[in-house]
C-alpha cells in the first residue's frame, strides 16, 4: 500500500526476562495486522496490559517483533542498519514528561534531536524556533524545564520531536501523568500538528474523551486488535467496549441515558461539543428554547 506510513503484518511480540516478569507482562502483542495511513490521527485504546504501549514501541524499532513484520515507509524495523532512518521518520513522546527532557534549557533540549542527526547549526536554530512556535512554547525557549508545568514539558518534548522533521509522532499515554489543563494542551497540540503540518499521529491513551476526537480508533485487548474504525463506529459497539472493561465517552453515555428516558438525539454523540449541539437541537425541536 502506497499511502500507508506504518504497516503491521501479523506481528507478535513477547517480552523476554525472568518467568515472573513474563507472567506479569504477558500478553504483549499477538498477531496484529494494522496499517496506519499518512496524515491520519489514530488513537489506540485499551486497559492496562492490553499491549497498547508495546504496540507503540514496535513502531520505531525500540522493540523488534519475534514474528511478523513492521515496516515504516517501506523500511523493515528488523533491519538494524535502518534504525536511525526509521527513528527520523517516527518520533515518540512518552508518559513521564520529566524523563524525556535532556537539556537544562528548553531550546537546547529541542535542538538535541537535530544535533544528533548532524544538521547544520543555522538550520537547527531555524527548526528549533519553528518547532517551539508550532507548540506555542517559543516565549519559554530560555526557561529551565523544571520550572514548567506538566503540559508545557510535554509540549517541549513534542517540539523536540518535530524539530527532527518526523512524519509521524507516536504518543505513548502522554496525558496520563498531567493535570486536566495540561491534558487539553497536549491534545490541542497533537491535533494542530496533524491538521496544519500533516503529521501522522498515533495517540495511545486510556481517556475515552481523547480517543473520541481522533479520525480512527483502534481498541486493543489482550494483545489483539479488537475494534478498528471511526470513533462513531467503535463507540457504537457499546456492549463490546463495556465487556472489556472500558467506558464509553461520558458525552455518549449521557446521550444513551437521554435515549433510555425517551429523549431521542438526532446525531451520533461522542464529544462534549457534539453533545451540546445535539441537546440544543433536541430542545429546540421540543420547543423548550428558540
Amino acid at each position: 500500500m502506497k499511502d500507508s506510513i506504518i504497516e503491521f503484518d501479523n506481528v507478535s511480540f513477547t517480552y523476554d526476562g525472568t518467568e515472573e516478569e513474563q507472567k506479569e507482562r504477558l500478553p504483549a502483542v499477538k498477531e496484529v495486522t494494522l496499517s496506519i495511513k499518512k496524515g491520519e490521527f489514530v488513537s489506540v485504546l485499551g486497559h492496562n496490559g492490553s499491549g497498547k504501549s508495546t504496540l507503540a514501541k514496535l513502531c520505531n524499532a525500540i522493540l523488534i517483533p519475534q514474528s511478523g513484520k513492521v515496516t515504516v515507509c517501506g523500511m523493515d524495523t528488523a533491519d538494524e542498519s535502518l534504525i536511525y532512518d526509521i527513528r527520523e521518520k517516527v518520533g515518540m513522546v512518552f508518559q513521564n514528561p520529566d524523563n524525556q527532557i535532556v537539556a537544562t534549557i528548553v531550546e537546547d533540549d529541542v535542538a538535541f534531536g537535530p544535533e544528533n542527526l548532524g544538521v547544520e547549526p543555522k538550520e537547527i536554530r531555524r527548526r528549533v524556533d519553528e518547532s517551539l512556535k508550532a507548540v506555542g512554547m517559543y516565549e519559554f525557549r530560555e526557561y529551565e524545564p523544571h520550572k514548567l508545568s506538566g503540559g508545557q514539558k510535554q509540549r517541549v518534548a513534542i517540539a523536540g520531536i518535530i524539530a527532527m522533521r518526523t512524519d509521524c509522532i507516536v504518543f505513548d499515554e502522554p496525558t496520563a501523568m498531567i493535570d486536566p489543563k495540561g491534558r487539553a494542551e497536549v491534545m490541542e497540540t497533537a491535533k494542530k500538528l496533524n491538521r496544519e503540518n500533516g503529521i501522522t499521529v498515533i495517540f495511545i491513551t486510556h481517556f475515552m474523551e481523547e480517543a473520541a476526537e481522533a479520525d480512527r480508533v483502534v481498541v486493543m485487548d489482550d494483545g489483539r486488535v479488537l475494534l478498528d474504525g471511526t470513533p462513531a463506529r467503535v463507540f457504537g459497539e457499546r456492549e463490546t467496549i463495556r465487556k472489556i472493561g472500558l467506558e464509553i465517552p461520558s458525552a455518549a453515555n449521557l446521550a444513551d441515558m437521554l435515549k433510555e428516558n425517551g429523549i431521542e438525539l438526532e446525531s451520533d454523540v461522542l464529544t462534549p461539543s457534539d453533545c451540546i449541539d445535539a441537546v440544543y437541537e433536541a430542545a429546540r425541536k421540543a420547543g423548550v428554547c428558540s
Partner: peptide, 26 residues
Amino acid sequence: RRAYELAFAMECRCYRGGEGRTRMKQ
C-alpha cells in the same frame, strides 16, 4: 527507572554518542 526511560527517549531521538553530532550553539 528514570535513567532507563531517559535512555529510551534519547535513543528515540537518534542519539548515538558524539560521533557525527553537530551543535546548535556555536
